[in-house]
Deep mutational scan, measured.
Amino acid sequence: MFYPNSPQTSPQLTQIPYGQQYAMMQRQIQQPYHPFATTEPQARLYPYHYQGPIQQEQGGFITQQSTAASPQYVQMRVTPVDQSIMSGYPNQTANGSSSSSFNYNIHPQQQQQQQQQQQQLRHHAMPVGSVPLQDDRYRKQLIVNYLAPDVTSTDLHELFSRFGELDGARIIYDKQTNMSKGYGFVYFCHAEDAKEAVERMSGYEFHGKWLKVGYSTNPLNIVPSNSSPYVHAGSRGAAG
């Protein structure tokens, strides 16, 4: 039997160049792979992502010199942007860049009308829970959420009447099932009393439920100042 490094198959040491006398086997001759043993700084910083320098080929596509990437890492192929796409944008300079302001050559009167329309939209648009300043009635009506099913309009009136005089209180019921929808409205005579009720009743436990109280901004629920107070009856038909 002959071994790869046996004296019968191995040459004389004098015939082997210096430095390879003890590297006779194939696994010894093959050098191990060192990912950080390279002179390129990109490979030292990113050993798993770097795959060699990027070269520009004919046709405008950018390719990489090395083989496919590892399945664990996804390499994105980048193509140059066609400058003709950006030619339609206004205020574009000769080098292809555009300024931040756009001039669509709008007539001054049209621009003024658009600004007025935007101001009107901001004036009428009102986020949930906010209180408008032009109508004091919005500051007097509250919406009470997360009410228990057994709470009546009379219970709601008695709960909030300790903060001040009320114009009314009612629970909203479903017309088909005649069941409470879980929320109601309270109408105060003074805005200061309503503000105190919002601050003190939010998070209050009532009939096993934690109440959420806020201003009601729905104009359909506003009680006119010259109208008669609501009837605080315990029956659902009268309260709904």
Rank of each mutant, 00 (worst) to 15 (best):
I62N: 12
G52M: 07
M201Y: 04
V144D: 00
P132E: 03
N226A: 05
Q55K: 14
V74C: 07
D150I: 15
Y183P: 00
L142K: 01
Y204F: 11
A148T: 09
Y104A: 10
I171K: 02
K212F: 01
L133R: 14
V213E: 00
S100T: 09
Q56P: 11
D135S: 07
G234Y: 14
M24C: 10
P41V: 03
K140A: 02
A43C: 07
G208L: 02
P149Y: 10
H107G: 09
S216R: 01
P132T: 07
G52Q: 08
E192C: 13
Q119K: 14
G184C: 08
Y89I: 05
H107M: 14
I54S: 12
Y183M: 02
G234V: 08
P108M: 11
Q116W: 14
S97Q: 10
F160K: 00
P7S: 09
T63V: 04
Y3R: 14
Q115T: 09
N91P: 08
S99D: 06
Q26L: 02
G182S: 06
T14K: 15
G164T: 00
H124D: 04
Y18C: 13
T154A: 07
T217F: 02
E40V: 07
V198K: 10
I54W: 06
R122H: 04
H190P: 00
Q110T: 09
F206I: 03
D193M: 11
R27I: 02
Q12K: 12
I16K: 15
Y230Q: 05
I171H: 00
F102K: 12
Q114C: 10
R122K: 09
H34V: 07
S98Q: 10
Y204E: 08
V78F: 06
Q92C: 08
L156M: 14
G182V: 02
Y138E: 02
W210F: 03
P80V: 03
Y46N: 15
F206Y: 08
P4M: 12
E40M: 06
H107N: 13
Q113M: 07
V128Y: 13
L211D: 01
Y48M: 10
Q55V: 06
Q176W: 14
S6M: 09
L13V: 12
G52N: 14
S153C: 04
R162G: 11
T14N: 09
K212N: 14
V151K: 01
Y18D: 14
H207Q: 12
G203K: 02
Q120E: 05
V198F: 14
T63N: 10
E40G: 11
D150E: 11
N105L: 06
S153E: 13
G168P: 00
L166M: 15
Q120N: 14
G60I: 02
V186M: 01
M86P: 14
Q109R: 11
L211V: 06
Q110C: 11
L45N: 15
A194R: 01
R122T: 04
I85V: 11
A239F: 14
Q42P: 11
P90N: 11
Q115D: 03
R44I: 01
K140T: 04
K209E: 02
Y173N: 07
R170F: 02
G240C: 13
S10W: 04
V81F: 06
M76T: 15
W210E: 02
F188M: 08
Q20C: 12
G182F: 01
Q110M: 05
D155R: 04
G19N: 06
M86S: 07
D136W: 12
Y33H: 10
G214R: 00
S98W: 14
Q12V: 03
I222A: 03
G59F: 03
Y104I: 08
I106L: 09
G214F: 02
G203V: 03
T79M: 07
Q109V: 08
P11T: 09
P7E: 05
T154I: 04
Q15L: 02
D135G: 04
Q72S: 12
N95Q: 11
V128I: 12
R139N: 05
P149W: 15
P11C: 04
Y204K: 13
Q112V: 08
A191T: 13
T39K: 14
A69R: 15
V128D: 05
W210M: 02
I29R: 14
E205I: 15
S70N: 15
Y22R: 15
S70K: 14
C189F: 03
E165Q: 13
Q110N: 05
E40I: 10
N5P: 09
Q110A: 07
S87M: 08
G237E: 03
W210Q: 02
K209S: 02
S153W: 15
G168M: 01
M25P: 13
S161M: 13
L147D: 01
V131A: 08
R200S: 04
G182P: 00
Q120I: 08
D136T: 04
Y187A: 00
Q115M: 09
H157P: 00
Y3P: 11
S228Y: 13
K195Q: 12
P219A: 01
D136C: 14
Q119L: 12
A37T: 12
E40R: 14
G129C: 10
D155Y: 07
R44M: 03
G52C: 11
T9M: 07
L142T: 02
F36K: 15
M179L: 09
R236N: 05
A37K: 15
P149S: 02
Q15P: 10
Q118L: 10
